[in-house]
Computed example of a mutant assay.
Amino acid sequence: MILKIQQEEYKLPITADDQPDLANIDTFYRENNGNFWVAVDNQVVIGTIAIKNIGNKNATLRKMFVKQEYNRGKDIGVSSNLLLQLLDWAKQENFSRIFLGTTSQFLAAHRFYEKNGFKEMFKWIRSTFMKN
């Protein structure tokens, strides 16, 4: 699902080999106090989100993807529910800040993150956001 969104929808030249974290989610995300969530509808993955501990009560939000046919918006709420799950979990785990990076192609994602309390920190080819 993630590769399909990256390659077909956003035309990003990225492969599974470029993302070794997806080959071993337990080791990459769940060890060292991180986590990975999957949204499922009728046994089909429709969304993902992950958090990785980077130390000093800081974490990175990664791999937030939702299938386009699930609107990504407020109608169904898959994106919001995934993010709320991650933020609730991060609060319970005492993270102070969550960082994320995204490309300029994901403008709707920029608005989504800002609407959910993230602040843009840097803007070059990639935008970096932070939430306290």
Rank of each mutant, 00 (worst) to 15 (best):
residue 63 K to I: 03
residue 11 K to A: 11
residue 12 L to P: 00
residue 40 V to Y: 09
residue 7 Q to S: 08
residue 113 Y to N: 03
residue 71 N to V: 12
residue 16 A to N: 11
residue 27 T to S: 15
residue 61 L to V: 13
residue 11 K to M: 09
residue 74 K to C: 09
residue 67 K to S: 14
residue 105 Q to P: 00
residue 66 V to Q: 09
residue 93 E to V: 03
residue 118 F to S: 01
residue 4 K to Y: 13
residue 9 E to N: 12
residue 62 R to D: 11
residue 73 G to H: 10
residue 59 A to Y: 06
residue 72 R to Q: 14
residue 24 N to L: 07
residue 27 T to P: 00
residue 60 T to L: 11
residue 56 N to P: 00
residue 16 A to Y: 13
residue 122 F to T: 13
residue 27 T to G: 10
residue 53 N to K: 02
residue 37 W to P: 01
residue 44 V to T: 14
residue 63 K to W: 10
residue 97 R to T: 12
residue 86 L to S: 01
residue 66 V to P: 06
residue 13 P to T: 06
residue 85 Q to N: 13
residue 93 E to I: 01
residue 57 K to I: 01
residue 23 A to K: 15
residue 5 I to T: 12
residue 118 F to K: 03
residue 122 F to C: 05
residue 34 G to N: 02
residue 123 K to A: 13
residue 127 S to N: 12
residue 59 A to Q: 06
residue 32 N to G: 02
residue 48 T to M: 07
residue 113 Y to W: 05
residue 130 M to A: 11
residue 77 G to P: 05
residue 95 F to M: 08
residue 93 E to T: 05
residue 64 M to N: 04
residue 49 I to V: 14
residue 96 S to T: 13
residue 118 F to W: 01
residue 61 L to N: 07
residue 89 W to R: 07
residue 69 E to A: 07
residue 106 F to M: 15
residue 84 L to S: 15
residue 103 T to V: 05
residue 87 L to P: 03
residue 24 N to R: 06
residue 34 G to Y: 00
residue 71 N to S: 14
residue 73 G to R: 10
residue 104 S to D: 14
residue 49 I to A: 11
residue 70 Y to S: 05
residue 74 K to N: 14
residue 20 P to Y: 03
residue 15 T to C: 01
residue 80 S to F: 10
residue 27 T to E: 15
residue 50 A to D: 01
residue 54 I to R: 06
residue 89 W to F: 05
residue 68 Q to R: 15
residue 4 K to C: 06
residue 49 I to T: 04
residue 66 V to M: 09
residue 43 Q to P: 00
residue 54 I to E: 08
residue 90 A to P: 08
residue 56 N to R: 14
residue 91 K to N: 13
residue 98 I to K: 06
residue 10 Y to D: 02
residue 27 T to C: 11
residue 55 G to V: 02
residue 24 N to A: 11
residue 43 Q to M: 08
residue 44 V to F: 11
residue 127 S to M: 09
residue 38 V to S: 07
residue 57 K to F: 14
residue 129 F to S: 00
residue 17 D to Q: 13
residue 54 I to N: 03
residue 16 A to Q: 15
residue 42 N to R: 13
residue 36 F to L: 06
residue 1 M to C: 06
residue 72 R to E: 11
residue 53 N to P: 04
residue 53 N to L: 03
residue 103 T to D: 08
residue 9 E to T: 12
residue 6 Q to L: 15
residue 91 K to M: 07
residue 61 L to W: 05
residue 96 S to P: 00
residue 101 G to V: 05
residue 13 P to V: 03
residue 117 G to P: 03
residue 116 N to C: 03
residue 11 K to D: 09
residue 55 G to S: 05
residue 105 Q to H: 14
residue 27 T to A: 15
residue 28 F to P: 00
residue 99 F to N: 05
residue 40 V to N: 08
residue 48 T to C: 12
residue 68 Q to M: 13
residue 52 K to N: 00
residue 49 I to S: 07
residue 78 V to I: 15
residue 1 M to I: 09
residue 5 I to D: 06
residue 52 K to V: 09
residue 63 K to N: 09
residue 23 A to C: 06
residue 107 L to A: 13
residue 114 E to M: 10
residue 69 E to F: 05
residue 96 S to M: 10
residue 69 E to S: 10
residue 122 F to S: 06
